[in-house]
Design a binder for these strands. Structure first.
Lengths: 214, 214
DNA sequence: TCCAAAGTAGACCCGTGAGTTCAGATCGGA
DNA sequence: TCCGATCTGAACTCACGGGTCTACTTTGGA
């Protein structure tokens, strides 16, 4: 369950699938704008162009709505982050490759849906502790693992010296996300592309100074 | 409960100052536990051992309560973080000094009040955008500035090579906080002291590999 | 000792929002 | 064309919580 695979136009287990999507999209938009508690199911229904009863037909209630919306968003975020990591091949200059990945990872990170998801996640941690585990295991850890794998391959190719690829991956993302969190005021402000690129460059610079070949 | 340190018996500008403190402490505790919207003023009053009307006498309403609680917490956090940075002197081994500061900064960062403050901050960002600016300018930026100053002095003393101390400070804290955010599941899980120390050591290791004297 | 400020308990008003119900409109497939 | 499943709109219940008010008690300073 939870996976929200939807995939290609499934015959749908029950009724209109498009309504489902519309509701989930609206739910996320409203949650994002107003926060979970403040968000009204009436509003979500209206924004989805659907009757309130329909919302309760599809999902049991507000909680399920949040969980499902999260699942969908997490899937999306995972795919995009993995695509970014996939750009880290052994061809071309190591620095340029790393910077390219860095910029793409940061772009994912700064995407409005990603930012909103993180904010909601942190906000609702006390009420829904399970969400943190799901998102972190299903997205964060996997992306980190994929990145560690790539770094290990670069290391084998003699392009890096990373005795502990998992640690290196963690620190690589740390050098990216933490400064961006600060510069975006915790996701409040839009970070201009040039500043984003500069942060990526600086992170890669420090990373290579520490882990680059001698 | 809610303790309320009572502080030293101040003469107090107006009447019972201890009630004020008790209310603020209780407010923070309840906000922390239930979130701003869910928190009930009745509950806060009860937890402070005070009548609801008293809360409204001291503070105008719920909003003021949140803002004041934040201000108090931010002051506290600033002092503790600056104290941690102050430990970064030029005496002794650079690595040991840096690790000492790193551990102390992380201890501040992982303190329950700090964690809760950050969580509330992120959660209520849409409703109270000003809070982010206040906290970041009054605490984050100042701590970073203080750290940059220390790093610059170490650089002058030939113990580091930091052409841009502000950037170095930002990356130093990035290497500390981001991994801890992950390991603590966004502040959900307690991080054991040994893991905390290991993270500090790893961060300093990478930092010195990049910025240490050749 | 006395009194005004501060605090207390509890009822009270009022808006809001989750979730339900139901009669009727709509739609999709056979 | 018809049937059953789905959707709609609107009204309704119910609980909760912010904020006010009032009549009464406590407290601390002169």
């Amino acid at each position: 369950m939870s996976a929200a695979g939807t995939g290609a136009g499934e015959p749908s287990v029950r009724g209109r699938i498009d309504k489902r999507r519309a509701i989930l999209d609206a739910a996320f938009a409203v949650f994002a704008r107003e926060g979970y508690t403040q968000a009204g199911v009436d509003v979500i229904a209206a924004e989805a162009g659907v009757a309130k009863a329909t919302v309760y037909n599809h999902f049991g209630g507000k909680e399920t709505l949040l969980r499902q919306a999260f699942a969908a968003l997490a899937d999306d975020a995972l795919a995009r982050n993995l695509a970014a990591v996939d750009r880290l091949t052994e061809r071309g200059g190591t620095r340029a490759r790393l910077e390219d990945v860095a910029v793409h990872l940061l772009t994912c990170y700064c995407d409005e849906k990603s930012r909103t998801m993180r904010r909601l996640l942190v906000a609702e941690t006390p009420r829904f502790p399970a969400l943190v585990d799901i998102v972190q295991e299903q997205v964060g850890d996997r992306v980190l693992q994929a990145l560690a794998d790539r770094l290990a391959r670069l290391s084998v190719a003699g392009l890096l010296r990373t005795p502990d690829p998992a640690l290196a991956a963690e620190q690589f993302t740390a050098l990216l996300t933490a400064p961006i969190d600060r510069r975006s005021r915790l996701g409040t402000r839009r970070v201009p592309a040039t500043e984003l690129r500069a942060t990526a460059k600086a992170a890669v610079g420090t990373f290579l100074a520490a882990y680059g070949p001698r």
